[in-house]
């Protein structure tokens, strides 16, 4: 059975979520095809053809796919699945993948398996439930398995070493149901949260968005991304795209430094698979210390600048 991977839309190069989704696809056995969609995606498609283990790249290049609107993307994927006889359709667990994959599954009249963290066999997968406090093993009896893939649970495949054929996929149309209006994308020189090696995150203890430069200085010294807990985002300290947690971004960096974060269950759900966790909090009873490898009970306003200077 062949697997179709829906690539994370990209303006340049192959995105990490696509590579980790391919990591999951490689565990299914069988040939792997990748759908690269968007507008002006020729170079990205060529880069995708270099990715290890990819047999074929399908490109869907059209103005109506420029913003990845689910209403336009889903019918295209459904056509490909029906024409190509795919047994699996995988998408990354990004806001793009989570928006599109259930729509694809419903149109195919199959279940969707969210956020898989393990492939037991071609029809059996593990996935976290209850904010990661339990891991379910689920088996699908549907003819096509549609799943989203938690990037932190799979190794990214190598971006080079492959030589896939590139083919145009036709059939994209504008549904007329939705229209892209605008985007406010945070611009940052720092690495993206979901692919950063080191993350420095701030919580309610930061007291104000004006104090986040403290974390940014530390992050820049470490080449780290800056994240936040839900409490910090809800309080308006930083924008929503900083949020790490059950319903925000799921991360698993080499080093996660939690500053002024108490450690609510829904935050831990987003970062507890990090390799090394450091917690800095003045409340020694904070639950974050129960999972931190290194805990420092201290006033963050003193400890963070000191840490920045010391590294």
């Amino acid at each position: 059975m062949t697997t179709l991977v829906i690539a994370e839309p990209s303006a340049e190069g192959v995105k990490v979520p696509t590579l980790t989704t391919l990591g999951a696809a490689s565990k299914l056995g069988g040939e792997v095809h990748v759908l690269v969609l968007g507008q002006g995606v020729g170079a990205v498609a060529d880069a995708t053809a270099q990715v290890a283990g990819v047999a074929k790249v399908l490109t869907a290049d059209a103005a109506e796919l420029a913003h990845g609107l689910a209403e336009n993307v889903a019918p295209l994927v459904v056509n490909l699945v029906q024409a190509g006889g795919y047994g699996h359709v995988l998408a990354p667990s990004t806001t793009f993948g989570k928006n599109v994959a259930p729509r694809v599954a419903a149109l195919l009249d199959v279940a969707q398996i969210s956020d898989i963290t393990g492939v037991e066999s071609a029809d059996t997968f593990t996935r976290p439930i209850y904010a990661g406090n339990a891991i379910a093993t689920v088996q699908s009896s549907d003819p096509v398995k549609v799943a989203t893939v938690r990037g932190t649970a799979f190794e990214a495949v190598a971006a080079t070493g492959g030589s896939a054929s590139v083919e145009a996929a036709s059939g994209a149309t504008d549904s007329g149901l939705s229209k892209f209006v605008s985007q406010e994308v945070s611009k940052s020189e720092r690495p993206e949260l979901t692919s950063a090696r080191v993350i420095v995150s701030g919580g309610r203890g930061m007291q104000s968005g004006d104090n986040f430069p403290l974390l940014e200085a530390l992050a820049d010294k470490l080449g780290a991304a800056v994240g936040a807990s839900r409490a910090a985002v809800d309080a308006g300290f930083v924008p929503n795209d900083y949020q790490v947690g059950q319903t925000g971004k799921i991360v698993a960096p080499e080093l996660y430094i939690a500053v002024g974060i108490s450690g609510a269950i829904q935050h831990l759900a987003g970062m507890k698979d990090s390799k090394v966790i450091v917690a800095i909090n003045k409340d020694e009873e904070a639950p974050i210390f129960q999972i931190a490898d290194y805990g420092l009970v201290a006033d963050l306003f003193k400890a963070v600048p000191e840490l920045t200077a010391e590294i």
Partner: peptide
């Protein structure tokens, strides 16, 4: 239901770590 739940298990537990006394020790 289209998905059959075969098993529900506890996630791997993270062993708690240590407290450090100072920024220097942490580094």
């Amino acid at each position: 239901p289209r998905l059959k739940t075969l098993k529900v298990a506890e996630p791997a537990k993270r062993a708690g770590g240590v407290k450090v006394g100072s920024v220097q020790e942490l580094v």
